[in-house]
Design a protein around this nucleic acid. Structure first.
Lengths: 230, 230
DNA sequence: GTTATTAATTGACATGTGTCAACCTTTTGC
DNA sequence: GCAAAAGGTTGACACATGTCAATTAATAAC
């Protein structure tokens, strides 16, 4: 049986510009029917259950997408710039947002009128196909994260996130960990206290090094192994 | 803060015919470029990692869609008739299936050539929109299941599945539980032994009644409460 | 119908993680 | 610069679940 690896890494990895399939006129239309808003770190971009009359496009920044039931929170994904958010409102069944979103870093968000967005979907089939591709990729990623959070032990999940931060966000082995323990806890589905203990363990085993806010991955191979066997 | 309820219920609930937005000619084209295959209960319909040159449509039966890493299995959803399967192969990035599928009951599956499927996506924007809606609905459901499996205790998850079986599949409070304990375990993300113990507990508390294969929900209200709080 | 498999049940046990409470440290607000 | 708030760390403890092994029941194979 072939082995497949899953990771709880959450970074939305859609690298391209989403609007490449639109003509110049269409892009114009889209921009005319949208507004750009700035959100400071920590600000709420949209709220699960709130009315959704637009699709959101992340022009810059980093956004956390999550659902909660009033007691606990599940982070679905983290989206960097050039990603779409709240696509669910494209479906006529959804009048409200299916999830909440918060700015992890200062972010610029473009709100696109849903009617215009739908119109473009209808008139440009390449665009429609692109949206389909995005939805499919998104599903695949959530599924991987789903598998990891339900079947990996905590150490593996924590390793996942550290690797994800190093590889996909900061693109270096040493970076400032500007997430609180509680935020890491949400990302990994572990309690904040346990996160502390685990980081401490990683530290004591010389897998990582923490100085103030700075985190450095020392034993990359080992961390990778923990992520896989975890 | 508003409360939102999530359930680990997995039944794909897309009630409609997927091809309603196609013209007669298009449906013809689709049928000419597809074949219908029968699968007996337990047979594998598609395998994660296998080449995907077609989209699958469930004409009848009940199908379990899952991913695994060679050690453990995560059931993503259960699909009844009139649902599409393997839509991921619509994306040009995916040459292979992202998940496996198995027949829970004897099922008839139509394999639709992916090229023709894509062609229809391009030429009929209503169809494209319909596929987008399906993908969106699918995501919403997986997210709910994701939340439940990661944040609910086992009793709540087991209650979820029992309710799901009663409400969505059998549509009655008394039905034959034609799933093994191991299958229930996979669905709920619990070990088979624990499932046995929990069912026993439900029985001893007069919430359910089990006679042979037959399962009857006695205290529906209580089960519902367990599903919500647990 | 008898045997061989597979599924279900049960008990004993280990352990990974969450919870709670206390305390320390850093950041924020004024 | 000080007070207040928020975040981080640690220990003690409980307990929900998984794992392993053994036994019984049900099903399939011949």
């Amino acid at each position: 049986m072939q082995k497949q690896k899953f990771t709880s890494c959450t970074i939305g990895s859609y690298e391209k510009k989403c609007f490449s399939s639109l003509t110049e006129t269409e892009v114009d239309l889209l921009y005319k029917n949208s507004v750009k808003i700035s959100f400071a770190k920590g600000e709420v971009i949209c709220k699960q259950g709130g009315l959704a009359s637009h699709v959101l496009y992340i022009e810059s920044g980093l956004v956390k997408v999550f659902i909660d039931d009033g007691v606990s929170t599940l982070v679905l994904k983290i989206l960097p710039s050039c990603n779409l958010l709240g696509l669910a409102s494209v479906s006529d069944k959804n009048k409200t947002f299916q999830h909440s979103a918060m700015a992890y870093l200062d972010s610029e968000i473009r709100q696109i009128d849903i009617t215009v967005f739908k119109q473009l979907l209808f008139q440009n089939h390449l665009f429609a196909k692109e949206i389909i591709d995005i939805l499919i990729e998104n599903s695949a990623q959530i599924n991987g994260r789903f598998f990891s959070l339900t079947h990996k032990q905590s150490y593996g999940r924590l390793a996942d996130i550290l690797l994800c931060l190093a590889e996909k966000i900061f693109k270096t082995n040493e970076f400032d960990l500007n997430l609180t323990r509680k935020e890491i806890a949400e990302l990994t589905g572990i309690s904040a206290e346990t996160v502390v203990r685990m980081l401490k363990k990683f530290k004591s085993e010389n897998i990582i090094q923490i100085t103030g806010k700075s985190l450095k991955i020392i034993d990359y191979t080992r961390l990778k192994r923990i992520s896989e066997t975890g």
